[in-house]
Amino acid sequence: MPPAQPPSVLESLARRHGVLMVMDVVESVRLMEEDEGGFVRRWRRLVEQTEQQVLPVHGGRIVKSLGDGLMLEFGDARQCVGAAFGIQQAAQDLNRPLEAAHHLCLRMGAHVTDYLCDRFDIYGSGVNLTARIAGLAGIDQLLVSAGLRDQLTAGLHADVEDLGECWLKHVRNTIRLFRVSAPGSATSAPAASS
């Protein structure tokens, strides 16, 4: 009888389905170079508010900290969008006493997808796609995939703008994206090129 084969890496991971959001600070390298201590203090305060005040209300959790960004996980699309608006508001509140050049300006991308996870991290092409969507977002924008937009119910208080089919870096096919913003706060700024 041949020896038993060890389980594959994939067999040791749990499969999940949910909504992922990636957010990061625009021009974080410049902000860090100009005032490392101030940037870190402001960023840590935003992460703390996100973890303690925003995510408990919207059923989300921090999957990982990226140094100048976060990857977040949610059970559904409405929770994700509600949390995005809450995080944007928290950042605006932190920015209020500062000159514009020192603001923490966020860009966010969200996608509903399947992924693999263990106790340390999450993995899969959907994770990478979510990060690419965030990379296309402009300053203070939330971009979402068509799959996520389709899960938003008609009662959601948000402005949704169809951006059409978009090319994402290192992604073979185009993906239809939507800009989602709190009512009346929609920005005319274009999505950033990536």
Rank of each mutant, 00 (worst) to 15 (best):
P2F: 10
A4G: 10
S8E: 11
V9T: 13
E11I: 00
S12R: 09
A14D: 14
A14Y: 06
R16M: 09
H17S: 15
H17E: 13
V19D: 08
V22W: 02
D24Q: 00
V26T: 08
V26R: 06
V26K: 03
E27N: 14
S28G: 05
S28L: 01
V29M: 14
V29P: 04
R30Y: 07
D35L: 04
E36P: 09
G37Y: 00
G37R: 14
F39Y: 12
F39Q: 06
R41C: 10
L46G: 11
E48D: 15
E48N: 13
V54L: 00
V54G: 01
P56E: 03
H58M: 05
H58C: 14
H58P: 00
G59F: 09
K64A: 11
L66Y: 01
G67M: 13
G67I: 07
M71Q: 12
E73D: 02
E73T: 05
E73Y: 00
F74D: 06
F74R: 05
G75A: 13
G75R: 10
C80A: 15
C80F: 08
V81E: 01
G82K: 00
A83Q: 10
A84L: 07
A84F: 02
G86C: 07
Q88T: 08
Q88H: 12
A90D: 06
A90G: 10
A90E: 12
A90L: 07
A91I: 00
Q92L: 12
N95W: 02
N95I: 03
R96G: 01
P97D: 07
P97N: 04
L98K: 09
A101R: 15
A101P: 01
H102M: 06
A110Q: 04
A110I: 02
Y115D: 01
L116A: 15
L116Y: 15
L116F: 15
I122Q: 06
Y123T: 03
Y123N: 00
G124P: 13
G124A: 01
S125V: 13
S125K: 03
L129M: 14
A131D: 05
A131G: 12
L136T: 05
A137P: 11
G138R: 05
D140W: 03
Q141K: 06
V144D: 05
S145T: 03
A146E: 15
G147A: 09
L148C: 12
L148K: 03
L148M: 10
R149D: 11
D150A: 08
L152H: 06
G155L: 11
L156E: 10
H157C: 07
A158H: 06
D162I: 08
L163W: 07
W167Y: 07
L168D: 08
K169F: 07
H170F: 08
H170C: 04
V171F: 07
I175E: 12
A182C: 05
A182K: 08
G184A: 12
G184T: 13
P190E: 10
S193Q: 10
S194T: 13
S194W: 08
S194R: 13
